[in-house]
C-alpha cells in the first residue's frame, strides 16, 4: 500500500481521509483542483514521531509542487454526516518550503490529538484514537475566493448561494468580512447580488504564513464577482452535484482567471 499518492490516486477514505478522497474524486472527474498529494494517516503519524524515512518520503513527494504550499488535515472521520471536525483540525496556509512541511504535518497530527479535539470527540460520541491524513497542495494566490452552497442553507430553497471576498477564502470562512452575497437559480439567472463590506483580505506572505491586509477603500463595497465568473461558479455547482450528489457546501477560488475547487462537502444543516 502506498502512503503518499497524488490526489488523483487517493480513493480510500479509511487511509487518506474524506478531504483527500473528495479532492481526488474531483480530479478524476476533470474538475480544476490545485495540484497536490495525499498522505495516509499512518505516514502522518510516522512523520509526527520523527521517523526520518517517512519524513524523507513526504519531502520527496511534495518537491514537484509549486510553492507556497497549503497543508490541510484530512481526518478519517472528518466532515462526516454525524460529526464535523471543521475547526478542530488544523490547516496551515502558506508553508513556504518543503523543509517546513514535516513540522506542519506534525502540528496537524497534534491538532487531531489536542485537548479540544478530545473534548469534542467525547461530546459527539467519537471517543476513539484519531487517524489524521493530510493533503499538501499548492496554495493559490487567489484574487477572489469564497464559499458556495448548492441549496440555500438558510431557507432550503433550490438555488445557489455564493459568498465572496478578495484574496484567500479564509476571510469568508473565518467570518473576517461581510462578504458579497449572491443567489443564482437553476437556470443560471442571478436572483440577488448584494455587496458586502470587505475591509480586510487575507494574503500569503513570502516568508510563510498569511497576513491580514486592508482592502483599498474603493474595493470595500465593490462587488468582487463579474457575471461571467458567476456563470462559471454556477457551472461548478452543477458539476459538483453530478460528482458528489445534491446539497453541496463548496470552497472555491479564482486565481489568474481560473476557477478552482478547494473543497466540497455535504451541507450538514439547513436553517438556523
Amino acid at each position: 500500500m502506498k502512503d503518499v499518492v497524488p490526489l488523483s490516486k487517493a480513493t480510500d477514505t479509511a487511509i487518506f481521509g474524506s478531504k483527500a478522497v473528495g479532492l481526488g474524486d474531483a480530479e478524476r472527474k476533470g474538475l480544476s483542483v490545485p495540484p497536490g498529494v495525499a498522505l495516509s494517516g499512518a505516514i502522518v503519524e510516522a512523520v509526527a514521531s520523527g521517523d526520518e524515512r517517512a519524513i524523507e518520503r513526504v519531502l520527496k513527494s511534495v518537491q514537484p509542487l509549486n510553492r507556497p504550499l497549503a497543508v490541510r488535515s484530512s481526518a478519517v472521520d472528518e466532515d462526516g454526516a454525524e460529526a464535523s471536525f471543521a475547526g478542530q483540525h488544523l490547516t496551515l496556509l502558506n508553508v513556504p518550503s518543503s523543509a517546513e512541511v514535516s513540522s506542519a504535518v506534525r502540528e496537524i497530527w497534534w491538532s487531531a490529538n489536542s485537548d479540544s479535539a478530545i473534548t469534542y470527540r467525547q461530546r459527539v460520541g467519537l471517543f476513539a484514537r484519531p487517524s489524521v491524513g493530510v493533503v499538501v497542495q499548492t496554495l493559490l494566490d487567489s484574487d477572489v475566493a469564497g464559499v458556495m452552497f448548492t441549496l440555500n442553507p438558510m431557507t432550503g430553497a433550490d438555488e445557489c448561494v455564493i459568498e465572496a471576498s478578495w484574496g484567500l477564502g479564509e476571510a469568508v470562512v473565518a467570518g473576517l468580512v461581510i462578504p458579497d452575497y449572491y443567489r443564482i437559480d437553476r437556470s443560471a439567472r442571478v436572483l440577488e447580488r448584494k455587496a458586502g463590506r470587505k475591509k480586510r483580505a487575507i494574503r500569503s506572505v513570502a516568508a510563510g504564513g498569511t497576513v491580514e491586509e486592508e482592502v483599498a477603500p474603493n474595493l470595500v463595497e465593490q462587488l468582487c464577482l463579474e457575471d461571467d465568473q458567476l456563470a462559471e461558479l454556477h457551472g461548478l455547482a452543477l458539476r459538483c452535484e453530478e460528482v458528489y450528489g445534491p446539497a453541496r457546501d463548496i470552497e472555491w477560488a479564482f486565481a489568474n482567471g481560473t476557477l478552482y475547487l478547494l473543497q466540497c462537502r455535504a451541507v450538514t444543516r439547513v436553517g438556523i
Binding site: 490529538n113 489536542s114 485537548d115 479540544s116 479535539a117 478530545i118 473534548t119 467525547q122
Partner: peptide
C-alpha cells in the same frame, strides 16, 4: 498548553 476544565489528550 493545557486549560483547566478542558478534556485531556496528552
Amino acid at each position: 498548553v493545557v486549560r483547566e476544565g478542558s478534556g485531556g489528550a496528552a
